[in-house]
Design a protein around this nucleic acid. Structure first.
Lengths: 147, 147
DNA sequence: CCATCATGGTCAACCAGGCTGACCATTTCT
DNA sequence: AGAAATGGTCAGCCTGGTTGACCATGATGG
């Protein structure tokens, strides 16, 4: 019987919580106070281009109605605009505004800052090793809240 | 300028989401269908002994009222009992029931199963390396939802 | 070519799980 | 003894999800 290693799961959880908290913190500090983590994940999909609310829903594994509300918020706050698809008048493709792009940029910087702080503890090759290991897990599918 | 590594944060997030989903899944399969992840984290503190609802609140970084509700659920579902502290009649120390202990055991097994599945991809030393790296991050404090 | 079905989106009602504020009983401090 | 602090509960509210129903548009097949 192998030694108990369920603690690895807890460590990953703790790291994820710290990552989200850190990113959120950095983002707020750079002036984006009206975005939640879920908005950030929506940005990921929207930035890829030609995303509808339904695409966002699938990306976040939430209902289309919930995604609709979320997009409403992004529109209200000036991060996103609903455009039109001339070839299908039902679709409302989403597009980042100037501010939306600024926010995604800030979010990337915020994430990088968190990883940099990890690098202080792990060293550059530690971070590389960590990334390699996580990549090998090959996790795909929608982005889900940890809990 | 260093290469962009914000993606490490995303990888950690994905791993955490997968871990929680996997644990939850395994737990349900072993018959515990009325526990959420938050309950599991509460168990962690309660299992340490002499925990009050307030301790749970601090452990999960939620309000004492929210912790109270959460404990109510655990009591209703038969996982926990509220005892008395003879030396302070305000405190209601919590104690795991038989079923509570069974559930924490199942949760550990569920977590271990998830890590085992990771081991299939990373190999035994990969898992060890991952744990070492995460431990070096030295994250403490309350358990926070990733988002 | 039209009828039917599928798809993208919105509206409404509801629920779960957080929050704050107020309060009570008890303990601790001065 | 009186005042402040502490553990707990109650009540009301808000946010972010859910499902069900529905509309407009597009795709499909007799």
């Amino acid at each position: 019987m192998e030694p108990a290693r369920g603690d690895v799961a807890m460590l990953v959880l703790a790291a994820a919580g710290a990552a989200v908290a850190g990113i959120q913190d950095n983002l707020q500090r750079s002036g984006f106070r009206d975005v939640r983590p879920a908005h950030g994940f929506a940005f990921v999909r929207i930035a890829q281009g030609d995303a509808t609310a339904l695409d966002v829903a699938e990306h976040l594994a939430i209902s289309k109605q919930a995604a609709g509300k979320l997009v409403d918020q992004l529109v209200d706050r000036g991060y996103v605009v609903r455009t039109h698809d001339p070839s299908d008048r039902r679709r409302r493709p989403l597009q980042l505004t100037q501010r939306g792009r600024a926010c995604t940029g800030a979010a990337e910087a915020a994430a990088q800052q968190v990883v940099n702080s990890w690098q202080d503890r792990l060293g550059a090759d530690g971070v590389v090793a960590l990334r390699n290991l996580l990549q090998q897990l090959d996790l795909s599918g929608p982005i889900r809240p940890a809990w």
